[in-house]
């Protein structure tokens, strides 16, 4: 299926905002797969997740400022392919876990060789959880370096599409609404700490969302979007490892 033929009720483009929204059936695609696909895209898009009844809503705003309909549809087409791939891979990794663990363990043990006595003495056995010592279930992209953004990307000033409008002291502020079933509250707290130097935040919780009002002297929209990507990244990591580091 090409992006152009994706059903209208599943995909909605907002050209003015540079955003495309995709509705995903949560029964068909496990949340892990949505997280994994979202993560693959956070170096090229601002990604935001939300719920709409039985469906998940994924908002993608390309960082390179792609603003025409065709470009946005390409992005969502690529995302749906990645999503399907992640969903299937998730299942395969589960089915073939024993083989994957055996081969990876043998490959790493063969390459590393036996530890030295000094290394054994220095090893802190309390350091890692033993649930998944090889990180089989963990997507590396989730943990490690995504591409650094270019200056042009940093200075992108477009408004986050998922943000509700708020007002403070007569001035519009950006409100990020993180769905409580999709985002980890601790991840949001951790993200707010990281971004504390760049903006001021006010938080509240409603029935469904953690709501964060963002105000910054400069680049408010960029800060808000980066914060949202960061919170998503931490949420995904915590979903895999069982806690925010």
């Amino acid at each position: 299926m090409t992006a152009a033929t994706l059903p209208q009720d599943l995909v909605e483009t907002d050209v003015a905002d540079g955003t495309v929204r995709l509705r995903v059936d949560a029964q068909l695609y496990p949340l892990e797969a949505v997280y994994a696909a979202a993560y693959v895209f956070i170096d090229r898009c601002y990604v935001f997740l939300d719920r709409e009844g039985e469906r998940l809503r994924v908002s993608l705003s390309p960082k390179d400022g792609a603003l025409d309909e065709a470009a946005l549809r390409d992005v969502v087409g690529e995302f749906t392919n990645e999503l399907l791939s992640c969903a299937w891979r998730n299942q395969i990794a589960r089915d073939n876990r024993a083989t994957l663990e055996a081969v990876t363990a043998q490959a790493l043990a063969g390459a590393r060789g036996a530890p030295t006595l000094a290394e054994l003495e220095a090893f802190d056995f309390s350091e890692e959880t033993f649930d998944d010592p090889l990180g089989i279930a963990m997507s590396w992209e989730e943990k490690y370096k995504k591409r650094e953004r270019s200056e042009a990307e940093r200075s992108d000033q477009r408004r986050p599409p998922w943000a509700g409008a708020g007002e403070r002291g007569g001035r519009a502020v950006i409100e990020l609404r993180f769905h409580r079933g999709l985002y980890d509250g601790n991840a949001i707290d951790a993200a707010l700490k990281v971004f504390a130097e760049h903006a001021r935040f006010e938080q509240r919780v409603d029935d469904e969302h953690f709501v964060v009002a963002v105000s910054a002297d400069e680049d408010e929209r960029v800060v808000a979007r980066e914060l949202a990507n960061y919170a998503l990244g931490l949420t995904i990591r915590s979903a895999k490892t069982g806690g925010v580091a």
Binding site: W88, I92, L100, V103, L108, R112, G113, G135, W140, Y144
Partner: peptide, 27 residues
């Protein structure tokens, strides 16, 4: 250290990502 290089997360990730048992299609 040599063992740190071989145990590096990126090395581990590539060993996993290039395992055809973990790849849709290849599987």
């Amino acid at each position: 250290s040599y063992r740190d290089l071989m145990g590096h997360e990126t090395v581990r990730a590539l060993a996993l990502a290039s395992n055809l048992e973990a790849q849709p299609d290849c599987v």
